[in-house]
């Protein structure tokens, strides 16, 4: 597995701020991995994403120390054109990242900016709108779409660039449950069908718990916990401190453990929980 993102001892301090927003962070993400980044508000998740994109310090001025590698590229010193071949980003607020007045133009916009040939652009727009389920809405205005459709459009517009890595910064936090479902289904589709490397900042985990390779938990500008979902949730996580809720079944399991029920492992999905509970019941039946 090739290394997609490698960060070593990264420090980021915004201009005119005293404290660092990212403090000596290191991480490595392999090609094709699906990684969730979680943590409380203000812990530096967005700052990290923007630094991987090179937007910090190119657009937002900040002091950056340490090294960032995206494949064989250094985004801190590369041009937007080079960076876009490797990595693109979808933001939290769908409203502010749609910059044209039609669905077609929105997807074509980045491709036109990078000067792709006309036929290629048309082909990619068609293809990508099919992937995200917006075919037939080419002439609609982004303003007329639902929240979930808007975010799907934002994803389409970065997908059209065919990046190796997609970063999604809280793509569902401003959406209603329907919109959230649409977007999370789409992310899983990218994961399963296209094997894109995905780094997603998320506060909800249930939808991804069975597919995600690794969870990174950030706090105070550093990664404080890291591992596959099974490992991360094996010890009790308190939502107030961590900034995200563990899967509901894990929370119930923590309660059971606290009340003295011995569980072989902490389940992270409903199926797993069912198996564990059946196992316990079978054992009890056998012993009595």
């Amino acid at each position: 597995m090739a290394t997609a993102i490698k960060i070593e001892d990264l420090w980021v301090r915004y201009r005119e701020e005293e404290d660092y927003a990212v403090k000596g962070l290191s991480l490595e993400i392999g090609e094709g991995e699906f990684v969730l980044l979680m943590g409380p508000s203000g812990c530096g998740k967005t700052t990290l994403c923007l630094t991987i994109m090179g937007i910090i310090p190119r657009v937002i001025k900040a002091e950056v120390k340490g090294s960032v590698r995206v494949f064989d590229l250094d985004p801190l010193n590369a041009s937007p054109t080079e960076i876009a071949k490797y990595v693109t980003i979808v933001f939290q607020n769908p409203e502010m990242q749609l910059v044209t007045t039609s669905v077609y133009e929105e997807v074509a916009f980045p491709l036109e900016n990078f000067g792709l040939p006309r036929d290629e652009i048309k082909r990619r727009v068609k293809e990508v709108l099919e992937v995200v389920g917006l075919s037939g809405l080419e002439d609609r205005s982004p303003a007329s779409l639902s929240g979930g459709q808007k975010q799907a459009l934002a994803i389409a517009s970065v997908l059209a660039l065919r990046p190796k890595i997609i970063i999604l910064d809280e793509p569902t936090s401003q959406l209603d449950p329907q919109g959230t479902k649409r977007v999370t289904d789409l992310i899983l589709k990218l994961r399963k069908e296209f094997e894109t490397t995905i780094l997603a900042v998320e506060h909800r985990i249930e939808w991804a718990v069975e597919y995600v390779d690794r969870i990174l938990v950030m706090s105070g500008g550093k990664i404080v916990l890291e591992g596959d979902p099974k490992t991360v949730f094996s010890k009790e996580i308190k939502p107030e401190e961590a900034g995200f809720r563990p899967p509901q079944v894990s929370e119930i399991a923590y309660k059971l453990v606290r009340s003295g029920v011995a569980l072989p492992t902490i389940p992270i999905s409903l199926n797993e929980a069912l198996n564990i509970f059946r196992g316990i019941l079978d054992e009890r039946a056998a012993s009595s």
């Binding site: 937002i60 937007p80 054109t81 933001f91 502010m96 900016n113 652009i121």
Partner: peptide
Amino acid sequence: KSALELGVALDSKGFGAMKTRTFSKE
């Protein structure tokens, strides 16, 4: 606040990255 977000979004879509751009529907 929105203007800042917009600037970042435009940059991430390669706006201004090249001297000239194409138009797919000419």
